[in-house]
Design a binder for these strands. Sequence first.
DNA 1: AGCGTTGTGGACTTTGTGGTCCAATACGGG
DNA 2: CCCGTATTGGACCACAAAGTCCACAACGCT
Lengths: 208, 208
Amino acid sequence: MSSSEPKTRRGRVSRERIVDRAAELVAEHGVQATRLDEVLAAAGASKSQLYHYFADRDQLVEAAVGRRCEQVLADLTATFADVATFDELARTLAGFVAVYERSPSGCPIGSLASEVADRNEGARVRVAGAFASWERLLADVFERMRAGGELRADASPEAHATALLASIEGGLLLSQTRRDAASLRIAVDAALGYLRTSLVAQPDPAPK
Amino acid sequence: MSSSEPKTRRGRVSRERIVDRAAELVAEHGVQATRLDEVLAAAGASKSQLYHYFADRDQLVEAAVGRRCEQVLADLTATFADVATFDELARTLAGFVAVYERSPSGCPIGSLASEVADRNEGARVRVAGAFASWERLLADVFERMRAGGELRADASPEAHATALLASIEGGLLLSQTRRDAASLRIAVDAALGYLRTSLVAQPDPAPK
DNA sequence: AGCGTTGTGGACTTTGTGGTCCAATACGGG
DNA sequence: CCCGTATTGGACCACAAAGTCCACAACGCT
């Protein structure tokens, strides 16, 4: 009654177009500040289409957030796919910071997270899933490092992944609030420093 | 004549009452979800009072956010004031996590941060100030640790403070999104692990 | 071609909410 | 005690934004 799945190709295309634009606008202005009319205008769709496929605003938001997470995650997957050593990871993260400096803003996922966590259960679950996937990506990096004999066998890839992710998210939040990338850089460096703790013994080149 | 400072005791009291209630409601529902009418009802004040002292909603939000930050910071100050050793810090943070488990929610400051960072410059500055103060609190702990000969002289209290703060914020965000305190605990443990890196040499009791 | 189902246009309704206005009241100093 | 200023009550306005409705068009099947 309220909402229904598209039953024809045409319908599916329409629904997709709406979700795509919604995801874009959510990425740009955040969830709260994204207006339905705005989405519809951008998608060249009408109110009836929207309410034909979605029960209400929350359901559209859920879909849009899900879509956005998929996109960001695709990027992240590509970024971390080939990372298999500590140095590669350090370089990758440095690139991350550099990108941030060029165009500061919160974390694409983190911002959604806090906006949605207490207000839209469906969307929250999507974001939680995105965090889980990201974490998995990092854990895989650590497992590769371990397979390569660089990471100690007793180190937990999952725990390290959680810790690194937290440092990144926290660093991004601090930097976003301060409008200064320094915090992010420090947080990431610290996370790498902690990771070093779990590497197999290595001559320590005099810490600055 | 948009807004004006109170010029009598009575006026000051009225303004305070409004800000107090606003701060409470902002803490409870977030900035976006706090309605002016709600604030006024709670404060037993009228529209004209509100607009007598504040130019617009944003200005009230700024004041409320500032107030809320002061309160949270007072708490934090008390909490960290006497911490001077690694073990005390670890215990204090464990208490932190325990409190979180009892009543999960985001970070009182962090949530405001992401909500306000790109939407209300005045409020953003207040939050940034709160982060700075918190960081200072932590840096002071590290300086005490250094004075006590526990922390190495070459360790930067400020950098460690930033890193720890980022881990806490990130951990809180992950835990809030997942509704599971585990992430926070892992993030904090990792931050402590990194801090251990800067302690003066110590017999390392076999890492689990 | 005809009929039922799905999709679409877009005007309309409703409601919540920030913000305005002006008259009335309380204060506070001379 | 009186006047000017600060403060207050609360009705009112404007408008944005979510959600409803119904007639019509497009499609797909037999």
